[in-house]
Nucleic acid binder design. Sequence first.
DNA 1: GATCGTGTGTGACTTTATCACTGAACTACC
DNA 2: GGTAGTTCAGTGATAAAGTCACACACGATC
Lengths: 211, 211
Amino acid sequence: MPQHSILDILPAQLRKEAMEKIRIVRFPAGQVLFSAGERCQGLPLVLQGSVKVQMTGASGHSIVLYRMGKDDICTLSIGCLMTGRGYRAEAVVEEEGEAAMIPRGVFDRLMDQSPEFRLGIMESYGRRLDDLMLLVEEVAFHRMDERLEEWLLARASRGVIAITHQELAVELGTAREVVSRLLKELERQEMVRLSRGKIELTGLVGSATPA
Amino acid sequence: MPQHSILDILPAQLRKEAMEKIRIVRFPAGQVLFSAGERCQGLPLVLQGSVKVQMTGASGHSIVLYRMGKDDICTLSIGCLMTGRGYRAEAVVEEEGEAAMIPRGVFDRLMDQSPEFRLGIMESYGRRLDDLMLLVEEVAFHRMDERLEEWLLARASRGVIAITHQELAVELGTAREVVSRLLKELERQEMVRLSRGKIELTGLVGSATPA
DNA sequence: GATCGTGTGTGACTTTATCACTGAACTACC
DNA sequence: GGTAGTTCAGTGATAAAGTCACACACGATC
């Protein structure tokens, strides 16, 4: 039984109709949900798991634009769905999970019939736009060492983070060497301990570089 | 009589109703349509003129995110309208013009009643998301000299561009000094001629730095 | 335990950002 | 028409970040 807040708020009858046409897709970690250039098959609602959306520039470099988790809507798909253009980014599964695929027809019908659904879609859209605007500002104006520390702190829950420098470079939209050097500097300051594919946080605390 | 494609496609009856509640706003060059933190009063449809949307980061630096021109929809406002949060960016008029302000109630009604209106809104949204994604890639990975040349070429229609180095720095999300130096270098190469507040394009052609 | 693929470290150099300051060009006002 | 004030532009010094090239280290596998 798919659980997603935007489905839960639908009136019973509409919800029942939608449920019948929705396809549930399980995805394992590492799977590519869609790549740049591909056409959109429907609107994915993330039920469980975590997916990162990243794009690769003309330069060949990649950057992670945002993540989707439980209860998120793949807002990016809506644009592709409506204009018929291909995706500009790609989506890669980080934690396995599942999504409900809403076909175009059902999406149109829900948009037509349910103000709640519309509101949910528009809110999701607003958040995504905000996220991207913040990312632009971050990339354009923030120092890389601060961004790295913030990134590490944001997922410091388990003390040890399993990630390669290359992957971390894509998260931040920079080069692997830059990440390696900054991490090495953090290690010298005894903020982290490094080993192959792993970063152990030891002495990193919020606002490490006070203004 | 306001002219906007998303209004033109409405069925006659709905269109008539909408027109009655729409407020037409004239704006002179330089006017700030909205600033960061402000609440959204309604959805602006740009009928005429040109508006740039820019945000200022925590660092105090600004960057232009995108522009709106004739027949555009201020997609950013939709998110604010739906979530009730304030704007994250500000909008400044570049060329005077006018906009039709659609109040929340009318917007909701049009979204409810008109599939054409919905499609127009979603398309506009998709385009904006694409724009921002491209901007992220541009800012993260492209060289400043190339971005500057592209910017100049993109509005080279009149041969002379009236803009200060500071304004150009905001366009590209960099510092004034960087723009000054790059422009000076272009002048040495006889690509441009510089004077106070003006840049004259002399020898700049597309793909100035072939791959 | 030799081999190979993938990660990581680092020097040398270029590009971009920041800071601090100078001078030049325009505006307005006496 | 001279002068004071403001906005623009130029530039040196230095720091941060990106690029290129290459060495080496780790861990899986044969």
